[in-house]
Design a protein around this nucleic acid. Sequence first.
DNA 1: TCACCATATCGTAATATAGAAATATAATAA
DNA 2: TTATTATATTTCTATATTACGATATGGTGA
Lengths: 121, 121
Amino acid sequence: MLRDFIIQAKAVSDETRVRILKLLEEGEFCVCQLMDILGMKQSTVSKHLGILKTAGLVECRKGGTWTFYRLSNNLINNYNLDFLKLLSSCLKDDSLIQQDKKKLREVVKQDVKILCTPKGE
Amino acid sequence: MLRDFIIQAKAVSDETRVRILKLLEEGEFCVCQLMDILGMKQSTVSKHLGILKTAGLVECRKGGTWTFYRLSNNLINNYNLDFLKLLSSCLKDDSLIQQDKKKLREVVKQDVKILCTPKGE
DNA sequence: TCACCATATCGTAATATAGAAATATAATAA
DNA sequence: TTATTATATTTCTATATTACGATATGGTGA
């Protein structure tokens, strides 16, 4: 129904959330990793992930002390997979998205324990 | 690029604008007709159409004293046609959209001159 | 040419939303 | 069991956005 469609559309209408979704196309990551790549504070990243999760675009699991997020591959409502599909065919050449993915490659080289633990920012 | 994608996504993130786009799937209509179907004031409808036009999702032409809007079928940016395509496969069973289309059938039976002229509201 | 019409645009008020600080919560680690 | 960690949630501020009334604009009709 229309409400669900609007929820999906709004979820992909924010730059930060699109960046998150494009990163999650590469795999599954925890809040800390996304914070580092996006250069944003924990509450911001967490809030955006919440919106994406509510929209059915991402799913999460607990792994040790971390929560890992990944793209959803289940039909949650009528449109979530449609939007993810559209997104996967877009933005391949976007400079910001490419920057993020470059940074991602650096981040995944680090053990998540090391990245997340030294809160010495 | 990302900016264009966000503009598209925001354009289809509003209920009123989605309703307009679904109506325009049926053909080309002027602001007066859309006002009647949607039950909204002229400035509201006009403003939404402006956003859709800027996003490259609709096009318009002047016909007499009227301005007629229709869905765009030109590639204006990287994503307009993708979004229109997604939308065309969605919401077929939505009750509000069906209501609007039923109302549309009544409206198109009336000569646009008769509908628009008697501003006696 | 002037009057009128259709609609684009501006201004206002109400509501929604993003980013971050502060706090609460759930779970793990010691 | 208690301390610590990761993150969800709340609160706040600034900004964005919607609907409508008022006004400006472009064009047609008389």
